[in-house]
């Protein structure tokens, strides 16, 4: 219907130059429907075959594999994170241990040095005390000597003086007088 009316109208209005086989609307030219439907069915069958046999299973497999890989990777990352945390804890512990050890060594060394120092001081003190005692003893001896000497000299001098003055006196009396005088 479209063909005949369209052609007639086209001829009448003078637009026939674009082909007699082209009625107003090519979509309504039912002579061509068979051709289009035939090729459409072939094209759809080809696409359906390509998609259902090859493309879709392949893409589905790739997507599933990727999802699996991502899950695995996340699990592995979680694992590694845990390991890193453990390692950090171990490091911290080792550091604390080392610090404690070092403190201990420092304290020990300090105590040792202190002990040595104390021993040396005591020894030196003892030596000094000994020396001082010796010195005092020597001084006492010298003092005693000196006193004895002075007594002798005083006795002699007294005897001499007494003799000089024309008195006679025995040595014992002079000595006794000098001694009592010297004692004061």
């Amino acid at each position: 219907m479209a063909t005949s009316t369209g052609d007639g109208l086209a001829d009448a209005t003078g637009v026939a130059e674009h082909g007699a086989s082209a009625p107003g609307m090519p979509q309504l030219n039912f002579d061509h429907w068979g051709n289009q439907i035939f090729w459409l069915i072939i094209a759809l069958a080809a696409i359906y075959f390509i998609l259902s046999r090859v493309a879709l299973p392949r893409i589905g497999a790739v997507l599933a594999e990727r999802a699996g890989t991502i899950t695995n990777d996340i699990a592995a990352a979680e694992d590694l994170k845990q390991k890193a945390k453990d390692a950090e804890a171990a490091y911290d512990k080792a550091l604390a241990d080392a610090r404690v050890e070092a403190n201990k060594i420092v304290a020990e060394t300090r105590a040792e040095i202190q002990a040595d120092l104390d021993a040396a001081t005591a020894k030196a003190d003892a030596e000094i005390a000994a020396k001082a005692a010796e010195g005092e003893k020597a001084i006492a001896a010298i003092k005693a000597d000196a006193i004895t000497n002075i007594e002798t000299v005083a006795k002699d001098t007294a005897a001499a003086i007494v003799a000089g003055l024309g008195f006679s006196a025995d040595d014992a009396a002079v000595s006794k007088a000098v001694t009592s005088r010297m004692k004061g």
Binding site: L40, A43, I59, A61, V62
Partner: peptide
């Protein structure tokens, strides 16, 4: 229509032939 089929083939089969993750 053949070009459409070829385009579908190119996109869905040839582009995915490496099956890359």
């Amino acid at each position: 229509m053949a070009l459409a089929v070829l385009a579908v083939f190119a996109l869905m089969v040839m582009m995915t032939s490496r099956r890359a993750t």
